[in-house]
Design a protein around this nucleic acid. Structure first.
Length: 265
DNA sequence: ATGACTCATTACATGAGA
């Protein structure tokens, strides 16, 4: 089975790219982030015509996640327990969508950006990660969960876990994505029993995001912020991973590219 | 060329992205 994650930065602007990606790579399950549309605006028929089932979660032009699968799509979940909301009157955002596809529980995750360190969005980001981690741990803990569960936590984590995951760490001094608190929140998932399964297959300084501005892509000034955490039972099935760097080229690309995982049958 | 932001919107300026 082939499982991919992609922050597509508007599904309506890139429906054809997503369809071409599925066909070219033979991806069975695609987790999307930043779909940027309401559920009723999602071009689901285009994917259904290609033989996929579609689950979407979108409330407005912001955020939005989806799962597209041709190996089944069951038990759809639109939040995780305890998922924090954002704002003075906290609103639960469209950032987490779970579904079981071919025996794997896939969570398409769009972790909050954080904006600036002194912005309320940064505290929200850390809180959001803390609660997701608590749930993820419970899902594979005996008593509250199933230690043999196959669970994939994939998406745009908006964290660069290592200094080499950004083109110039000095350019990020005082900025989000690289702070110790964010990195600790990221590695907490490893402490909870999950393994980030893409890095061992993908060379260092392989980025997944390049800003649209300032020639970041031609200069290869990017960030590695899209990751794939797997539960123990799922991690044992991973045979390979790739970053689809060519998806940053051509007409009207997303600023992120897909990360693809191959799973043994 | 991989080339100087892009997306969606109670839209022609603004908020968000990272």
């Amino acid at each position: 089975m082939r499982l991919a994650t992609w922050n597509i930065n508007s599904i309506r602007a890139r429906t054809d790219r997503a369809l071409a990606f599925l066909e070219r790579t033979g991806t069975d399950v695609l987790a999307l982030q930043e779909t940027k549309c309401k559920d009723e605006q999602f071009p689901r028929e285009a994917f259904e015509a290609a033989g996929y089932e579609v689950a979407t979660l979108g409330f407005s032009q912001w955020n939005g996640v989806a799962i597209i699968s041709r190996v089944g799509l069951e038990d759809v979940q639109t939040t995780f327990a305890g998922q924090p909301g954002f704002g003075v009157e906290p609103v639960t955002e469209a950032r987490a969508l779970g579904a079981t596809c071919g025996g794997v529980t896939v969570w398409s995750l769009y972790i909050p950006n954080g904006r600036e360190i002194d912005d309320p969005h940064y505290a929200y980001k850390l809180e959001w990660l803390k609660h997701l981690r608590a749930q993820a741990e419970s899902w594979i803990t005996p008593g509250t969960g199933d230690p043999d569960a196959q669970i994939a936590l994939v998406g745009d984590w908006n964290i660069a876990p290592l200094d080499e995951d950004v083109w110039d760490i000095e350019a990020f001094a005082g900025r989000t994505h690289v702070t110790p608190a964010e990195r600790e929140a990221f590695t907490a998932f490893a402490d909870a029993g999950y393994t980030e399964v893409s890095r061992e297959h993908i060379p260092d300084r392989a980025f997944t995001y390049w800003d649209y501005q300032q020639l970041r892509f031609p200069r290869n000034e990017g960030m590695r912020i899209d990751f794939t955490y797997a539960s123990p039972a799922l991690a044992a099935r991973v045979t390979g991973a790739t970053i689809e760097r060519n998806e940053r080229k051509g007409k009207a690309p997303s600023d992120h590219v897909p990360v693809v995982l191959d799973l043994a049958d």
